[in-house]
Each structure stands twice: as structure tokens, then as C-alpha cells.
Deep mutational scan, measured.
Amino acid sequence: KKKYVIKVYFEDTGKEVEIEAESKEEALEAAKRLAEELGLKIKKVEIYP
């Protein structure tokens, strides 16, 4: 089964997080949740198959 690796870059902090997920949708949801939890804004998202 294919996994996606999503790199999320946050504004202000210069922080980046990698998330593995089964689908792009799932990964983007996780990225949004994470940003909310951390109180950060997402600057850029890169998706690698």
C-alpha cells in the first residue's frame, strides 16, 4: 500500500514537520489539526508519493 510523506512548513517559526499518511486528504487533515494545536499558520505543504 502506498504511503504519502507530507512536509509541512509553518510561518514565523521556520519549523517543518513530516507526516506520513495513507492519502493526501488524510495528510492534509493531519497538517491542519497540527497547525491548530500549535496555534501556527501553514506556510507551505509539500507532498511526496
Rank of each mutant, 00 (worst) to 15 (best):
V45S: 03
E29N: 10
E46N: 08
K41V: 14
P49L: 09
F10Q: 00
I47F: 10
A30M: 08
Y4G: 02
A21C: 03
D12V: 09
I19D: 01
V5D: 01
A30Y: 10
A21V: 14
K43T: 13
E37Q: 10
K41A: 09
E36G: 15
K44G: 09
K41T: 13
E16M: 08
D12T: 12
G39S: 04
V5R: 10
Y48T: 15
I6H: 01
A30V: 09
K44H: 15
E20K: 03
F10I: 01
K7R: 09
V17W: 12
E36F: 08
G39Q: 10
E16I: 14
A35H: 02
R33E: 04
Y48N: 14
K32C: 09
I19Q: 01
I42Y: 01
E37V: 04
G14W: 15
E46F: 04
V8S: 00
E25Y: 05
K43F: 05
T13Q: 08
V5E: 04
K44P: 00
V5S: 05
K41E: 11
E18R: 07
I6T: 03
E22R: 04
A21G: 08
K24D: 14
R33W: 06
E18F: 07
V17P: 01
V8E: 00
F10M: 02
K24M: 14
V17S: 08
V17D: 02
L38N: 08
P49M: 08
G39E: 11
L40E: 09
E29H: 13
E18S: 07
E16T: 12
E46A: 09
K24Q: 13
K7G: 02
A27F: 02
A31R: 00
A35K: 02
V5T: 12
K41Y: 04
G14C: 06
A30L: 15
E20I: 12
K7Q: 03
I19K: 01
A27R: 00
Y4L: 10
T13K: 10
A21H: 12
I42S: 01
E46M: 10
K15A: 06
E18N: 04
K32F: 13
K15W: 08
Y48I: 14
V45R: 01
K32H: 15
V45T: 06
Y9Q: 06
Y4P: 02
A21R: 08
V45K: 01
I42G: 00
V45M: 13
V45H: 04
V8F: 14
D12P: 07
L28A: 10
V8L: 09
V8M: 08
D12H: 11
S23P: 00
K7L: 10
K2P: 14
E29Q: 04
E22C: 13
V8Y: 03
E36P: 01
F10Y: 04
K7H: 11
G14H: 06
V17E: 09
K15N: 15
I47Q: 10
V17G: 04
A35E: 04
K3A: 14
L40H: 09
E18G: 04
E22P: 11
K41I: 10
S23L: 03
K7E: 02
V45Y: 03
S23N: 13
L28C: 07
I42E: 01
Y4R: 03
S23Y: 03
K2S: 14
G39D: 07
K44V: 09
V17A: 05
K44I: 10
K1T: 11
T13L: 09
K3D: 14
S23C: 03
I19N: 00
Y9I: 12
A30S: 14
L38V: 11
A30F: 06
